[in-house]
């Protein structure tokens, strides 16, 4: 299970303010803290309040790389900002994200190939997010076909079937699990799968319980990666445990530690 640390995102107040003031300290502290927690990638998002997202993304990538050697996930709906960030990344990065919409596919997939980046593809289009697994998988198929068309290695495509909060769209939650299962049959080698895990618990009182439980359930369905709270120790221990229980990594007594330091 690849854990993508979610915390360096302008949606969080401290980061939003730091980006506005160009104060590197909060970003760098979270970069270090999330790595200590065991994150394998760091998500980087300027947030909605950033005026100039291209300049904001470039600055964020630079200050985070000053203190961390983890690969980055460039998270924006502004593709120029992502492209500017990709040019600064020292390690092959991941693009977050591209929906199943033709103009955006034509912009983002070649960019991923050019920069040797992995790519998160969302199972949504102009009409929004489908209600059931079947239609999510249909959109995933369009993204798989695009990977083939533009020469993105299938293992570098991460399908995100888009989890919604359980207190808003409860009926979607099991559908997403089913979608994860089915996406694995779309190609051989199969595309990978990812979730914005914390979304499942938005505005619920006991968020980490829902996040942890859903991570274990999704792992059993074949989930490969999660954008999540890397400093939720129990969550990280569960992620490590799923790997040995699913026979994905070879058991040893220190398996949790290995998971966090690899």
């Amino acid at each position: 299970m690849i854990i993508i640390g979610e915390r360096i995102n302008g949606m969080f107040k401290d980061i939003g303010q730091a980006v506005a003031e160009r104060n590197p300290k909060p970003l760098q502290e979270w970069a270090i803290k999330q790595k200590e927690g065991g994150a394998h990638y760091l998500d980087i998002n300027t947030g909605p309040s950033c005026d100039d997202r291209v300049a904001g993304m470039k600055w964020m990538v630079e200050v985070v790389q000053e203190v961390s050697d983890l690969p980055l996930v460039l998270d924006s709906t502004n593709y120029d900002a992502i492209e500017a960030g990709l040019e600064l990344c020292k390690k092959p990065a991941m693009i977050n994200s591209c929906p199943a919409e033709r103009p955006k596919i034509e912009r983002v997939f070649p960019m991923a190939v050019k920069h040797n980046a992995k790519l998160i593809g969302l199972t949504m289009n102009e009409k929004g997010i489908p209600k059931n697994a079947e239609n999510r998988v249909a959109l995933a198929m369009e993204l798989v076909a695009a990977a083939d068309e533009f020469g993105l290695p299938m293992e570098d495509l991460f399908i995100d079937p888009l989890i919604l909060p359980v207190n808003v769209a409860q009926d979607h939650v099991p559908e997403v699990l089913e979608a994860i299962r089915q996406v694995k049959f779309l190609a051989d080698p199969a595309p990978k799968t990812v979730l914005g895990l914390s979304n499942v618990s938005q505005k619920s009182p006991d968020r980490s319980l829902l996040n942890r439980t859903y991570l274990a359930m999704a792992a059993a369905c074949g989930l490969d990666a999660a954008i999540a709270d890397a400093n939720d120790d129990a969550l990280m221990e569960i992620a490590a445990s799923t790997e040995v229980l699913l026979n994905q990594s070879i058991y040893c007594d220190s398996y949790v530690k290995v998971f966090r330091t690899r």
Binding site: I250, Y251, C252, D253, S254, K257, V258
Partner: peptide
């Protein structure tokens, strides 16, 4: 399993 643990 012991092989991996010993290397760690």
């Amino acid at each position: 399993n012991i092989c991996k643990q010993l290397n760690i």
